[in-house]
Amino acid sequence: MSRNTFLIATVTAVTLAPVTQSCVALATSSVGLAVLKSILLGGITKGLNIFSNKDSFLANQLIDAAMPQQLKDVNSTLQKLGLSNLVQKEKDYIAQAAQFTVDTSRPILVNAVNNLTTEDAVRIAQGGTGVATQILKERTSQQLMAAIAPKVDAKLNEFGIVKTLNAALGSSNILGNLFGGQNSTSAVTGGISRFASEQMVNGLFSIIQNHEQQNKSAIMNSLTGMK
Protein backbone atom coordinates (compact mmCIF):
# COMPACT_ATOMS: atom_id res chain seq x y z
CA MET A 1 0.00 0.00 0.00
CA SER A 2 1.39 3.39 -0.97
CA ARG A 3 1.75 6.15 1.63
CA ASN A 4 -1.02 8.26 0.04
CA THR A 5 -3.41 5.33 -0.11
CA PHE A 6 -2.67 4.51 3.52
CA LEU A 7 -3.35 8.11 4.59
CA ILE A 8 -6.67 8.17 2.70
CA ALA A 9 -7.68 4.90 4.34
CA THR A 10 -6.68 6.25 7.73
CA VAL A 11 -8.66 9.48 7.40
CA THR A 12 -11.63 7.53 6.11
CA ALA A 13 -11.48 5.34 9.19
CA VAL A 14 -11.38 8.40 11.41
CA THR A 15 -14.25 10.30 9.79
CA LEU A 16 -16.71 7.75 8.39
CA ALA A 17 -19.13 5.53 10.28
CA PRO A 18 -20.04 2.82 10.88
CA VAL A 19 -16.61 1.23 10.63
CA THR A 20 -15.23 -2.26 10.96
CA GLN A 21 -12.99 -3.37 13.82
CA SER A 22 -9.98 -3.25 11.52
CA CYS A 23 -10.79 0.36 10.64
CA VAL A 24 -11.02 1.22 14.33
CA ALA A 25 -7.57 -0.26 14.78
CA LEU A 26 -6.30 1.85 11.89
CA ALA A 27 -7.91 5.00 13.28
CA THR A 28 -6.27 4.47 16.66
CA SER A 29 -2.82 3.97 15.19
CA SER A 30 -0.23 6.72 15.53
CA VAL A 31 -0.90 7.81 11.95
CA GLY A 32 -4.66 7.75 12.51
CA LEU A 33 -4.38 9.95 15.59
CA ALA A 34 -2.07 12.32 13.74
CA VAL A 35 -4.58 12.72 10.91
CA LEU A 36 -7.45 13.20 13.36
CA LYS A 37 -5.55 15.90 15.22
CA SER A 38 -4.58 17.57 11.96
CA ILE A 39 -8.25 17.81 10.94
CA LEU A 40 -9.24 19.41 14.25
CA LEU A 41 -6.28 21.78 14.27
CA GLY A 42 -7.20 22.84 10.75
CA GLY A 43 -10.73 23.64 11.91
CA ILE A 44 -9.42 25.60 14.89
CA THR A 45 -7.12 27.63 12.66
CA LYS A 46 -9.94 28.32 10.23
CA GLY A 47 -12.27 29.45 12.99
CA LEU A 48 -9.77 31.66 14.76
CA ASN A 49 -8.75 33.25 11.46
CA ILE A 50 -12.39 34.24 11.00
CA PHE A 51 -12.45 35.64 14.54
CA SER A 52 -9.33 37.65 13.74
CA ASN A 53 -11.11 39.57 10.99
CA LYS A 54 -14.13 41.68 11.92
CA ASP A 55 -15.71 41.53 8.47
CA SER A 56 -15.27 37.75 8.24
CA PHE A 57 -16.83 37.36 11.68
CA LEU A 58 -19.85 39.48 10.74
CA ALA A 59 -20.35 37.67 7.43
CA ASN A 60 -20.11 34.13 8.82
CA GLN A 61 -23.51 32.45 8.87
CA LEU A 62 -22.47 29.82 11.42
CA ILE A 63 -21.50 32.53 13.91
CA ASP A 64 -24.71 34.42 13.24
CA ALA A 65 -26.77 31.26 13.78
CA ALA A 66 -25.02 30.72 17.13
CA MET A 67 -26.44 33.96 18.58
CA PRO A 68 -28.35 33.15 21.82
CA GLN A 69 -32.08 33.82 21.82
CA GLN A 70 -31.72 36.48 24.53
CA LEU A 71 -29.42 38.53 22.33
CA LYS A 72 -31.79 38.06 19.39
CA ASP A 73 -34.59 39.40 21.60
CA VAL A 74 -32.53 42.49 22.46
CA ASN A 75 -31.86 43.16 18.79
CA SER A 76 -35.47 42.52 17.81
CA THR A 77 -36.68 44.99 20.43
CA LEU A 78 -34.24 47.64 19.26
CA GLN A 79 -35.25 47.16 15.64
CA LYS A 80 -38.94 47.52 16.52
CA LEU A 81 -38.06 50.85 18.15
CA GLY A 82 -36.37 52.04 14.98
CA LEU A 83 -32.87 51.58 16.40
CA SER A 84 -31.45 49.25 13.75
CA ASN A 85 -28.32 51.40 13.61
CA LEU A 86 -27.59 50.48 17.24
CA VAL A 87 -28.12 46.80 16.48
CA GLN A 88 -25.47 47.03 13.78
CA LYS A 89 -23.17 48.92 16.11
CA GLU A 90 -23.62 46.26 18.81
CA LYS A 91 -22.83 43.48 16.31
CA ASP A 92 -19.82 45.43 15.10
CA TYR A 93 -18.50 45.82 18.65
CA ILE A 94 -19.01 42.12 19.38
CA ALA A 95 -17.05 41.28 16.22
CA GLN A 96 -14.25 43.58 17.35
CA ALA A 97 -14.27 42.02 20.80
CA ALA A 98 -13.94 38.56 19.22
CA GLN A 99 -10.53 39.52 17.87
CA PHE A 100 -9.26 39.87 21.44
CA THR A 101 -10.26 36.29 22.33
CA VAL A 102 -8.13 34.55 19.70
CA ASP A 103 -4.85 34.32 21.63
CA THR A 104 -6.73 33.13 24.70
CA SER A 105 -8.77 30.47 22.91
CA ARG A 106 -6.00 28.99 20.77
CA PRO A 107 -3.86 27.32 23.50
CA ILE A 108 -6.94 25.90 25.25
CA LEU A 109 -8.14 24.23 22.05
CA VAL A 110 -4.73 23.10 20.82
CA ASN A 111 -3.90 21.57 24.19
CA ALA A 112 -7.17 19.62 24.16
CA VAL A 113 -6.46 18.31 20.65
CA ASN A 114 -2.92 17.28 21.57
CA ASN A 115 -4.29 15.35 24.56
CA LEU A 116 -6.72 13.23 22.55
CA THR A 117 -6.25 9.53 23.30
CA THR A 118 -6.74 6.26 21.46
CA GLU A 119 -9.97 5.86 23.47
CA ASP A 120 -11.19 9.13 21.96
CA ALA A 121 -10.23 7.88 18.50
CA VAL A 122 -12.31 4.73 19.01
CA ARG A 123 -15.32 6.84 20.01
CA ILE A 124 -14.80 9.06 16.97
CA ALA A 125 -14.35 6.13 14.57
CA GLN A 126 -17.50 4.45 15.86
CA GLY A 127 -19.53 7.64 16.08
CA GLY A 128 -18.76 9.18 12.73
CA THR A 129 -18.24 12.72 11.55
CA GLY A 130 -18.93 15.48 14.06
CA VAL A 131 -17.99 13.39 17.09
CA ALA A 132 -14.43 14.72 17.14
CA THR A 133 -15.72 18.28 17.42
CA GLN A 134 -18.26 17.19 20.06
CA ILE A 135 -15.47 15.72 22.21
CA LEU A 136 -13.46 18.91 21.82
CA LYS A 137 -16.50 20.94 22.86
CA GLU A 138 -17.11 18.75 25.91
CA ARG A 139 -13.52 19.20 27.02
CA THR A 140 -13.12 22.93 26.47
CA SER A 141 -16.40 24.88 26.24
CA GLN A 142 -16.61 25.80 29.94
CA GLN A 143 -12.92 26.68 30.05
CA LEU A 144 -13.29 28.83 26.95
CA MET A 145 -16.28 30.68 28.41
CA ALA A 146 -14.44 31.34 31.66
CA ALA A 147 -11.38 32.59 29.79
CA ILE A 148 -12.94 34.82 27.15
CA ALA A 149 -16.01 36.26 28.92
CA PRO A 150 -13.94 38.75 30.98
CA LYS A 151 -12.17 39.93 27.82
CA VAL A 152 -15.45 40.36 25.96
CA ASP A 153 -16.96 42.19 28.93
CA ALA A 154 -13.96 44.53 29.18
CA LYS A 155 -14.09 45.35 25.48
CA LEU A 156 -17.83 45.97 25.36
CA ASN A 157 -17.50 48.24 28.40
CA GLU A 158 -14.61 50.03 26.70
CA PHE A 159 -16.72 50.53 23.58
CA GLY A 160 -19.61 51.77 25.75
CA ILE A 161 -22.31 49.97 23.78
CA VAL A 162 -24.66 49.40 26.74
CA LYS A 163 -24.32 53.01 27.85
CA THR A 164 -25.21 54.05 24.31
CA LEU A 165 -28.23 51.74 24.24
CA ASN A 166 -29.47 52.95 27.62
CA ALA A 167 -29.10 56.57 26.54
CA ALA A 168 -31.02 55.89 23.34
CA LEU A 169 -33.83 54.19 25.22
CA GLY A 170 -34.11 57.03 27.70
CA SER A 171 -35.62 56.28 31.09
CA SER A 172 -37.40 53.12 29.96
CA ASN A 173 -36.35 49.80 31.42
CA ILE A 174 -36.61 47.81 28.20
CA LEU A 175 -33.12 46.34 28.38
CA GLY A 176 -33.49 45.59 32.06
CA ASN A 177 -36.75 43.74 31.41
CA LEU A 178 -35.03 41.62 28.79
CA PHE A 179 -32.48 40.61 31.42
CA GLY A 180 -34.91 39.51 34.07
CA GLY A 181 -35.84 42.89 35.48
CA GLN A 182 -32.29 43.88 36.34
CA ASN A 183 -31.92 47.49 35.28
CA SER A 184 -28.43 48.29 36.47
CA THR A 185 -25.89 49.05 33.77
CA SER A 186 -23.52 46.39 35.13
CA ALA A 187 -26.23 43.72 35.03
CA VAL A 188 -27.19 44.57 31.46
CA THR A 189 -23.58 44.81 30.32
CA GLY A 190 -22.80 41.48 31.95
CA GLY A 191 -25.79 39.92 30.21
CA ILE A 192 -24.82 41.13 26.76
CA SER A 193 -21.19 40.14 27.33
CA ARG A 194 -22.20 36.66 28.50
CA PHE A 195 -24.49 36.07 25.54
CA ALA A 196 -21.88 37.45 23.13
CA SER A 197 -19.31 35.06 24.62
CA GLU A 198 -21.72 32.14 24.21
CA GLN A 199 -22.20 33.11 20.57
CA MET A 200 -18.44 33.15 20.04
CA VAL A 201 -17.84 29.75 21.67
CA ASN A 202 -20.75 28.01 19.95
CA GLY A 203 -19.97 29.69 16.63
CA LEU A 204 -16.36 28.58 16.81
CA PHE A 205 -17.35 24.96 17.39
CA SER A 206 -19.81 25.15 14.50
CA ILE A 207 -16.95 26.24 12.23
CA ILE A 208 -14.72 23.43 13.49
CA GLN A 209 -17.48 20.87 12.97
CA ASN A 210 -18.18 22.21 9.49
CA HIS A 211 -14.47 21.80 8.69
CA GLU A 212 -14.60 18.23 9.94
CA GLN A 213 -17.61 17.52 7.71
CA GLN A 214 -15.92 19.14 4.71
CA ASN A 215 -12.98 16.80 5.19
CA LYS A 216 -15.35 13.85 5.08
CA SER A 217 -16.78 15.06 1.77
CA ALA A 218 -13.34 15.65 0.29
CA ILE A 219 -12.18 12.18 1.29
CA MET A 220 -15.28 10.52 -0.15
CA ASN A 221 -14.80 12.41 -3.41
CA SER A 222 -11.18 11.30 -3.54
CA LEU A 223 -12.16 7.70 -3.01
CA THR A 224 -14.82 7.94 -5.70
CA GLY A 225 -12.27 9.30 -8.13
CA MET A 226 -9.93 6.40 -7.42
CA LYS A 227 -12.47 3.75 -8.34
Results as ranks from 00 to 15, higher is better:
2 S>W: 04
2 S>E: 12
9 A>H: 06
15 T>W: 00
15 T>D: 01
25 A>F: 03
28 T>C: 14
28 T>H: 00
31 V>D: 09
33 L>G: 06
35 V>R: 09
36 L>N: 07
40 L>T: 05
40 L>K: 02
43 G>S: 05
47 G>H: 07
51 F>A: 07
53 N>Y: 08
55 D>M: 07
57 F>R: 09
58 L>E: 03
58 L>F: 07
62 L>I: 15
63 I>S: 05
64 D>P: 00
66 A>S: 15
70 Q>R: 15
78 L>I: 11
79 Q>C: 03
83 L>K: 15
84 S>W: 05
84 S>D: 13
86 L>I: 09
86 L>K: 12
88 Q>V: 02
98 A>Y: 04
100 F>I: 07
105 S>L: 14
106 R>D: 05
108 I>H: 06
111 N>A: 12
112 A>R: 07
112 A>M: 01
114 N>A: 03
114 N>I: 03
117 T>P: 00
118 T>F: 00
121 A>R: 09
121 A>K: 06
124 I>M: 06
125 A>I: 08
126 Q>G: 02
129 T>R: 03
131 V>K: 10
131 V>R: 12
131 V>L: 13
132 A>T: 07
133 T>L: 05
135 I>W: 08
136 L>S: 05
138 E>H: 09
138 E>K: 10
138 E>I: 05
143 Q>H: 06
144 L>T: 04
144 L>I: 10
145 M>G: 02
148 I>R: 04
160 G>A: 08
160 G>C: 09
163 K>A: 13
163 K>W: 07
166 N>M: 15
173 N>T: 13
173 N>Q: 13
174 I>W: 06
181 G>S: 09
190 G>A: 14
194 R>H: 13
195 F>A: 07
196 A>N: 07
198 E>D: 11
199 Q>M: 15
200 M>N: 08
203 G>Q: 02
207 I>P: 00
207 I>Y: 02
209 Q>S: 14
216 K>W: 08
217 S>C: 01
220 M>N: 11
221 N>T: 09
221 N>E: 12
224 T>P: 00
225 G>Y: 13
226 M>C: 01
227 K>N: 11
